[in-house]
Design a protein around this nucleic acid. Sequence first.
DNA 1: CTTTTCAGAATTGTATACAATTATACCAGA
DNA 2: TCTGGTATAATTGTATACAATTCTGAAAAG
Lengths: 214, 214
Amino acid sequence: MEHRTVSLAEQVFERLENEILSGKFPRGTVLTEMNLVTELGVSRTPIREAIHRLEQEHVIETTTKGILILGVTKKDLRDIFEIRLRIEGLASAEAAKRITDEELAELRESLELQEFYVPKNDPEHVRGMDSLFHRLIYRFSGNTALSDALLPLHKKVMKYRLASVSDHSRANSSAKEHRMIYEAIANHDPEAAEARTVEHIKNAMEHILKETNE
Amino acid sequence: MEHRTVSLAEQVFERLENEILSGKFPRGTVLTEMNLVTELGVSRTPIREAIHRLEQEHVIETTTKGILILGVTKKDLRDIFEIRLRIEGLASAEAAKRITDEELAELRESLELQEFYVPKNDPEHVRGMDSLFHRLIYRFSGNTALSDALLPLHKKVMKYRLASVSDHSRANSSAKEHRMIYEAIANHDPEAAEARTVEHIKNAMEHILKETNE
DNA sequence: CTTTTCAGAATTGTATACAATTATACCAGA
DNA sequence: TCTGGTATAATTGTATACAATTCTGAAAAG
């Protein structure tokens, strides 16, 4: 076996998670391990590892007939935003308290890239940078449990977030809101960081729930 | 293979999680898959599955030297309670809105068992019923994402919760607080359920953090 | 005495063979 | 035609063999 910094199991997990949360497989689809073996060209072992991790995240279910795709419903979306409204501000507040200059530079870079892509009408890249911004804040909060709780919630909005930032006006507002949050964190102002984050999540929620028909 | 309703992998996962979160292995301990094979008497396959699930919960880490036990630190505990303070009330409020009579009976039974064990000075059983009460509320909230977020947080307090309910006076107050929460849910009063739950978590947090030295 | 190199031991990652259960389809009989 | 049963196929669960990397310790060189 040649050197591989990231295991096949990890690669399969990320690929499947991404495909499922992007909506490639409609809810109710049933896959089998052998499907994935032939499609992905690896043995059952790494596939099974990925499957079990996805099952733990309630993205799929394993049945006697195969792997049932659950995906993310609109109700899930509402449920997720109710939670994020309550704890995502905490992540920003904690980050504002303890962020280092290096971390701040990383956060700023993701923000500036987002601002770069917005006028180009490039939703894929905008979403990528939008996501990165949030994930960096989770990490910089220094609260592992909080990061562990928020990350799956954030990932599950992926599909709907693409539709949202495809609306140029919303993409624009979102970038502006991110900048406000960034400024508060850079000023080490937890209260402002929290309040602006809650406002941002509220706006994102309203836009996404409005746009989503399902 | 004989009939088995729950897979070996699941059994190993639950056993290992329980042992680690009970504090059987101190933080920093390194195990290997072969250790567990000889100790548990099953092959590497189900053990590896359990390991990967525990890794996803950040309870252990896999290194080139083996399986590193992380466990739950006092900082983790503070982080966890900050989150629970913000979202556990939501679970109770949602449960108050949508709970059925059957579910209510189940919740009441766990409460009455807790009240039964408290005067007997039986911390293990008290903790078991205390935990069940909370988990039932997560489930009855009807919000899968919320339940998925709260359950790992709740499990990680297990070790410290035993010490807490071993204090008879705290065990008594805890049962009383549970009854107040139960009454609010039974009355389908979301505001009261939420307020009483937040108060309960606050009390639990203060007591646990005070008792914990680590 | 210290440092470096190398061989082997220990460990995880991957593939595959086998076991057991469950679903499916076909056939027989009423 | 419908129902029931049985054999076969499909699927996941488990064990094990093999691959590749990494750690460890001892020996050799300076």
